[in-house]
């Protein structure tokens, strides 16, 4: 066996060059390298194969690898662009870039729409909205009667479905978010701007200087 230095450890399946990822995302090269530190940690928490499995993703979010959560499942599925059941490094960086403070709001709005379009129909339907509200209630301590849930879903749907055709399309979603900007709060992670401070070791080893 040869030397097991950092260069070799980077040759994991799905590894992509930080310079390329930085050129395609809101991250600098240093930030991508710092994200690799985080990725290594997450992708080795249960199965040490350089890929984030759903159980590892759940473990990172909830400190419990068996906790099922509709929204965590949705995020995982959107991050897993190749739809092969795991998140590779490139997928991780490109997807997390949506949550970067410098990423255009329009990208965040589009991502949230895909997140809530549970059945990939190109629309958020009333049934999907109710399913998500019930999922949220199921994970929280909030108890609401079915009547109240129906009222909440109806009111929101009428407000968002401006064309009144029984489904929310991307155009209506953009208008709705413009009227309710707080909905996009969790689409920005301020932490991503400080990622190099959280994971400085890789930056010290970096062979590439940021162009910024």
């Amino acid at each position: 066996m040869g030397c097991f230095c950092s260069k070799h450890s980077r040759q994991t399946p799905g590894y992509e060059e930080p310079t390329i990822l930085a050129s395609e995302t809101s991250f600098t090269v240093s930030e991508v390298e710092a994200l690799y530190e985080l990725f290594k940690k997450l992708s080795s928490s249960i199965i040490d194969d350089g890929l984030i499995h759903k159980e590892e993703f759940q473990f990172a979010l909830f400190r419990n690898s068996n906790k099922r959560n509709l929204f965590a499942d949705r995020i995982f599925d959107l991050f897993d662009v190749k739809r092969n059941g795991v998140i590779e490094f490139g997928e991780f960086v490109r997807s997390l870039s949506v949550f970067h403070p410098n990423t255009p709001q329009s990208d965040k709005i589009a991502f949230a729409f895909r997140l809530y379009d549970l059945r990939y129909t190109g629309y958020i339907e009333r049934e999907e909205l109710k399913e998500m509200v019930l999922a949220l209630l199921n994970e929280s301590d909030l108890i609401l009667s079915d009547d109240v849930v129906e009222t909440i879903v109806d009111k929101t749907f009428i407000d968002a479905d401006s064309k009144g055709d029984g489904k929310i399309d991307m155009e209506e979603w953009k208008e709705f978010v413009a009227r309710n900007p707080s909905l996009m709060k969790n689409m920005t992670l301020p932490y991503l701007k400080d990622i190099t401070l959280a994971f400085p070791s890789f930056v010290v080893n970096s062979e590439v200087e940021d162009s910024e």
């Binding site: 929280s140 109240v148 909440i152 009111k155 309710n180 707080s182 992670l189 990622i195």
Partner: peptide, 25 residues
Amino acid sequence: KPAAMNAFELISTSQGLNLSSLFEK
């Protein structure tokens, strides 16, 4: 009042959507 809640506002409070947990040591 719960009935006055915005459904998407409610959904956005899900722990599953709080990705900042990924960065906790």
